[in-house]
Amino acid sequence: MSNSDSFIDEVTEEVKRDKLYGQMRKYGPIAVALVLALVGGAAWTEYRSAKEQARAEAAGDAIYAALDEADAATRATAFADMPLEGGANAVAALMAASSQVEAGEIDAAADILNGLAADDTAPQMYRDLAALKAAMLPNDDTAAKIAALEPLARPGQPYYLLAMEQIAYAQLGNGETEAALTVLRQIEEDAAASRGLRERIQNLMIALGEPMPEPVTQ
């Protein structure tokens, strides 16, 4: 190789290095920023995940601790005093209401359930369940009970079959056997009815003297 060729190669390599360094000076900070953003994002996600897990574990521990209380009134107070959020808070409220019922404090249970049903920050499934449980509380006013259950018994509502069942019980308690049987038939024929619910309804219908259809034979 001649000296001129060697010189040209050296110059070419130097130009390449200059271009590379130039590119690094130009885009290097952006690359570093992207790497830092990725690392920081991953760390933040991990931090939030760990925080949520710790919060869930603390909620679970608090609920289990309250469940260990033998006295229903003490258990209800423990649930009511829990500083929880979201679904965990709704679960605690439902358990507090259940404990109040066990303690014979029906009005206190109704206040808790109605409060949860009206809480816009609570998950909808818990609000609907609270409304159903509130309507199921002992109440001598059958008309008011049925009126409270009817919106929950509309098809498409998450607990509509259970609400219909409660309506039938209320009608039976009011001596409206035929009306109750009509509701029971609707439940029994509904494809969404669980096996347990259907068996419960069928047993009640038989007890009321309703003949059940013969099973279809092949």
Rank of each mutant, 00 (worst) to 15 (best):
A168M: 09
P213F: 12
N139D: 13
A70E: 08
P138E: 00
E178M: 02
G104S: 09
A72M: 02
Y21N: 14
N114M: 03
Q171G: 06
D119H: 11
V39R: 05
S2Q: 01
A179E: 15
N174Q: 11
A109T: 14
A103K: 01
G86K: 03
R48V: 05
A180Y: 04
N89K: 08
L34Q: 04
L94Y: 06
A147D: 13
L116R: 10
A122H: 08
L84S: 04
A109N: 09
A76W: 07
A78G: 02
A78K: 08
Y64R: 15
R55E: 09
Y21C: 08
W44P: 03
G22K: 05
E199P: 01
P213H: 09
A93L: 13
A54D: 06
K26G: 02
G175F: 15
S99C: 08
D68A: 13
N139M: 05
D140Y: 02
R195W: 00
D111V: 15
A78N: 01
M164V: 03
E105Q: 14
G22P: 06
L137M: 06
L113G: 04
L84Q: 04
G41A: 04
S99R: 01
T217I: 08
M82A: 10
L137I: 11
K16W: 10
R185G: 11
Q171R: 12
V11H: 02
G41V: 00
Y169N: 04
A70L: 09
I8D: 14
L36V: 12
L116A: 00
M125D: 01
M125I: 10
L94P: 10
I30T: 13
A31P: 08
A54Y: 05
D140A: 11
E102V: 09
E57P: 00
E199A: 12
A134M: 09
A109C: 12
A179M: 11
M95E: 14
D81H: 03
A92M: 12
A73D: 05
L113Y: 01
Q100H: 14
A180G: 03
D18Y: 15
R55F: 08
M212K: 10
A33H: 06
A58K: 15
I206P: 00
R75L: 04
A170T: 09
V183G: 01
V216K: 14
Y27I: 08
L137P: 11
T121L: 09
K19L: 14
Q23G: 08
R195Y: 05
V15H: 01
P155Y: 03
K16T: 00
A62L: 10
A122D: 07
M95W: 10
A78H: 03
P215F: 11
R198D: 00
A191K: 07
Y64I: 15
G41F: 01
A66M: 10
D5N: 07
L149R: 02
A170V: 12
E165C: 01
N203L: 13
G60Q: 12
Q157E: 13
P29Y: 10
T142A: 13
A59G: 02
G173I: 09
